[in-house]
Structures are given as C-alpha cells and as structure tokens.
C-alpha cells in the first residue's frame, strides 16, 4: 500500500449528496477478477454518454462534457470534494480501487458511509471529514478560483489552500497505518497467539459454531 504523508493537488467538486458505489463504479465492471483496470470507468454512467462495458476502449467513447471530471480545468484533479453520505450502498471495494486508479488520493466530505470508509483505509485513500460550513466554503472557492488546489498534510492533520485553512480529526492508528502504508493483515497476525487462545476458549463456550470434519 502506498503511504500517504502529504499531498498537494487540484480539487474536483462533486456537488451531490448520497453518491453511491453503484455510481462510482457500475456493476458491469465488477466481473473482473483483478484489482486494477477500473480507473477509466470511474463514474462511468456520468462520465460518458454511451453505455459502458468491460473491455471498451475509453478513447473511443462519447464523453459527457457536462460532467465535472471531464472539464479541462479538473483534468489533473487528485482531491475529490463531495457531499454527505459519500460511498453509500454496495460494499464493492472496486469503488475505492477505481477512485485510486483514476488518481484520487483524498476525498473530503461532511460524512462517509461506513463500509466505504473502511475500504478506503485499506487502500491508502485518505478520507477527510470536515464540517458542513467548511465544505460549503470549499465549494464556493472552487466556483470562483480556477485551478484551486489544496495541500493535505496527514502528519499535521491540516488542509491548506488559497485563503482556506482547516484541521481535521483522525484516529491515531488509522493515521499511522496510512503514514506507513502498512499491511493490516500483517498487523493482526502479530496477535496470532491471542487469536488462537480466544478460539480455543470460544470452542469450549460455543462449540456449535465450529463444524467438525469439514
């Protein structure tokens, strides 16, 4: 996993609430058995005017020029500014893979759906929760300033841009995992002895959970 320490990039505004993972990556792309190849299909139904399918060449598709991701000024966007309940719906981690492969390193919103929040963490995509007034201020800044960019400093838990300054909260362990790009499984494996001990006791207490001879 790529560590996240600090990132400066162009901010892309996605001004709608309840953006669900079906919109972030539509179901037809979930047939892939790989972790890569989703970037061109991020927000597929909004980004293109034709119906997308797995294996299509993005260069030959009809672009929806009204969609924010296709505006030339946001072409290099790497920070997504979103509204409430971003990432709701399906648990598909493909949504995070698509955002990351497209080039997003950070999503800023007033709130995120629970499963999406965990999935992002596992892939080094930093999710920052800011209060509504600050989110509104960022949308306003984007409306008036071409090329508006932000620096997201995870170590200092700060977001800074032209006339915009904010701090954000993050759990210490989540921060450490992101800063070090650490493998979560390896971390849990350090507790292998405790898991084995728990399991043995659990088997005594609730033997019906375990299926013998399977």
């Amino acid at each position: 996993m790529e560590p996240f320490v600090s990132h400066t990039g162009v901010v892309v505004p996605l001004d709608r609430a309840n953006v669900d993972t079906d919109q972030i990556i539509p179901k037809q792309f979930l047939k892939s058995i790989r972790r890569t190849g989703f970037g061109d299909n991020l927000f597929d139904a909004w980004r293109y005017l034709d119906e997308g399918d797995i294996g299509m060449n993005a260069n030959e598709r009809r672009i929806n020029h009204d969609f924010v991701l296709n505006a030339p000024r946001f072409a290099d966007g790497s920070i997504l500014l979103a509204r409430d309940n971003f990432g709701c719906g399906s648990s598909r981690e493909h949504a995070v893979w698509a955002l990351a492969e497209y080039g997003f390193r950070c999503v800023i919103a007033p709130s995120f759906a629970d499963i999406f929040f965990t999935n992002a963490q596992k892939n080094g995509l930093l999710l920052v929760v800011l209060p509504e007034p600050q989110i509104d201020a960022l949308f306003s800044a984007l409306a008036t300033t071409v090329g508006f960019s932000l620096t997201v400093d995870l170590r200092g838990q700060r977001i800074d841009g032209d006339a915009f300054h904010a701090t954000f909260d993050i759990e210490p362990e989540r921060k450490r995992l992101l800063l070090e790009g650490m493998d979560d499984i390896g971390l849990t494996m350090r507790h292998a002895d405790a898991i084995r001990a728990f399991e043995a006791a659990h088997r005594e207490r609730q033997p019906w959970v375990f299926r013998e001879g399977v």
Binding site: E93, V96, N119, I185
Partner: peptide
Amino acid sequence: HGIGTSEVEH
C-alpha cells in the same frame, strides 16, 4: 455486516 474485499482477505 458487509465487508470489502481487503477485509474478505483479512
């Protein structure tokens, strides 16, 4: 509850 693919592996 539902989990993502990284958690499936976990």
